Amino acid sequence: MESWNQTATDEVRSHAPGEVNKRIDERVERCVRHMAEQERSQISHYLEKLEREWDLNRAVMVVGSAMALLGLWLARRDGGRWRILGEVAAGLMLQQGLMGFGPLAELVRALGGVRTRKEIDLEKFALKALRGDFERIPKPDGGPLARANAALVAAQS
């Protein structure tokens, strides 16, 4: 089945392996379907959690900075040969900043399932639609699954 998430302008998604994107999309679908059966207060609580979720760029900057600092610290203790770790980390962060994607981002995304800001926002908008925050989104008959599917489609609009 083709994914409901058609975020074509997302550089990270376009460069990530399809199975990684699929795994992240399926997690969002499961969550939205689960939340379609919950009370508004539980949806609101989960939305607060999503507000605090780190996106991929933030995670890459933290991982890259930690690698650079570790390289500097090890180079200081070991006579400088670990300095290459800091240099590589700085280069990877520069690539991420300039191009919007890179090997470090792919690694963090694949291993940790860290999502882009657009992916997090899509889930938030779908949950807000479920909660009834938007007047123009129709409320389909057919129960929680139909509501979840309508919310996911509305989040893409």
Rank of each mutant, 00 (worst) to 15 (best):
I43R: 00
A154Y: 07
T116Y: 07
R136I: 13
S157R: 11
W4Y: 14
D55S: 06
K124P: 02
R33I: 11
V28Q: 07
Q6K: 15
S3G: 08
R13G: 01
K49T: 02
A36H: 04
A90H: 04
V28F: 09
V153S: 04
Q95Y: 13
G18Y: 05
R81W: 15
G71A: 05
K124A: 04
E29V: 03
G112F: 03
C31Q: 07
L69T: 05
S157L: 14
G86A: 03
E2G: 09
V114L: 07
A154V: 07
R81M: 08
K139P: 04
A148V: 09
L127E: 00
E19N: 11
L145P: 02
R77K: 13
E29M: 09
H34V: 15
G113M: 04
A155E: 00
F134P: 10
I120G: 01
K139T: 09
R76F: 13
L56F: 12
M93L: 08
E29A: 10
S3Y: 05
F125R: 10
P144W: 02
G143Q: 07
L130H: 00
L70W: 11
L69M: 10
V20A: 05
N149Y: 06
L145D: 13
A110R: 03
H45F: 11
A154M: 07
R76T: 12
L74R: 15
M93A: 11
G18S: 09
S41Y: 05
A16E: 06
R30Y: 03
P144S: 14
G18L: 06
M67T: 02
F101H: 14
R13Y: 05
L152Y: 06
R76G: 14
E26A: 12
N149Q: 08
A146Q: 07
V62S: 13
E119C: 07
E11K: 15
M35A: 05
R77Q: 13
K128E: 06
